[in-house]
């Protein structure tokens, strides 16, 4: 931040020795200011985030359909039991789990490795970091479209390169078992820079004297990494991983653009399935119940995230 305004001739102590009468009125006006400044933002969030979720909660107990219209009748927990016992939903949950675990693990390993390599460099770090960050800033639409072109079975550049080194063609997006892998690869390409950026922030915050002390003790490189680098970077890395896990769990756009859930239902994640139930099947009640269950999972993950965030801030 920039430097102080020219008010330094007022010592700080004077602020606390104000006479009581103006102090009280100031306190009152502070209260008023707080309410006036915070409530517009909170009201907007209540109207646009909380109210819709409450409405969804209400709908989840009914058989409402957005196209059929008419009054909604209460079916209570029927929607929830239907979803929780549906084999279709279990399959989507499994796909989502595979995708989240696969993508986040790959991103973490790759991102941390790149950050570690960059942090050991003397020259060219700024340029390298900037270049590595490009994919993260692109819209998922652009990323999805572009990879769809590159992974095209006929004229995609990936197959063309595979062909030139003598390997066969792969139907990346149109075969059951490769489609999910492609999705994971594309997500990894886009979000490895995210983990890298945060890991790099952690790595560069490790105090130099720790390494110097360790090298005086002739500690091995691996020992230094295990006992100094990792414990100090870990808390920050964990936050990055949780953040990515939440994002991956609620991912929709990349699936929509890259595979539209296909072939078959092999890349249908929970998010995508909710969309199909809500906007193609128009079972609004069921979709709401489905959505509420997803929100519950996100809340649990977000709580975890915030707990670690708090811990990091307190240290």
């Amino acid at each position: 931040m920039s430097d102080p305004v020219s008010l330094t001739d007022h010592p700080v102590q004077e602020a606390s020795s104000t006479p009581p009468a103006p102090g009280r009125s100031r306190h009152l006006s502070d209260r008023w200011l707080t309410v006036a400044f915070i409530s517009p933002a909170l009201l907007l969030l209540l109207a646009m985030s909380v109210f819709p979720l409450l409405w969804a909660l209400y709908l989840s107990f009914t058989d409402y359909s957005a196209t059929r219209g008419g009054p909604a009748t209460f079916v209570w927990f029927e929607n929830f039991t239907a979803i929780l016992t549906s084999a279709q939903v279990h399959l989507r949950a499994f796909t989502t789990l595979l995708y989240v675990v696969g993508a986040v693990t790959l991103q973490t390993v790759l991102g941390f490795s790149i950050a570690y390599l960059i942090s050991r460099r003397v020259r060219g770090r700024g340029v390298l970091t900037t270049l590595f960050l490009v994919p993260m800033m692109l819209s998922p639409v652009v990323v999805g479209l572009f990879w769809r072109f590159m992974l095209d079975a006929q004229f995609g550049v990936i197959n063309s390169m595979l062909g030139s080194i003598g390997l066969g063609q792969v139907e990346w997006l149109t075969k059951q078992n490769t489609a999910l892998i492609s999705l994971i690869v594309v997500d990894t390409w886009q979000w490895t820079p995210f983990i890298m950026l945060i890991a790099l922030a952690g790595l560069t915050a490790v105090p130099k004297y720790l390494y110097e002390a360790a090298s005086i003790d002739r500690a091995s490189e691996w020992f230094r990494f295990r006992t100094i680098t990792l414990p100090l970077v870990w808390p920050l890395l964990l936050i990055a991983v949780l953040f990515r896990a939440i994002e991956a769990f609620r991912l929709f756009d990349l699936v929509y653009i890259l595979t539209s859930g296909g072939p078959g239902v092999s890349t249908e994640t929970l998010s995508f399935h909710v969309y199909k139930v809500a906007f193609l099947g128009f079972n609004t009640g069921t979709a709401s119940a489905y959505g509420i269950l997803m929100v519950l999972i996100v809340i649990v993950l977000a709580q975890l995230y915030m707990r670690y965030l708090n811990k990091l801030k307190e240290d």
Binding site: L53, F249, S271, V274, S288, A302
Partner: peptide, 23 residues
Amino acid sequence: QLFFILSTRFMPPVVVVIPIFLM
């Protein structure tokens, strides 16, 4: 309050969009 504010940002957009669409 601050955590509540941040958590609204974590909601899955596909879920939020259903009631918003009706609204």
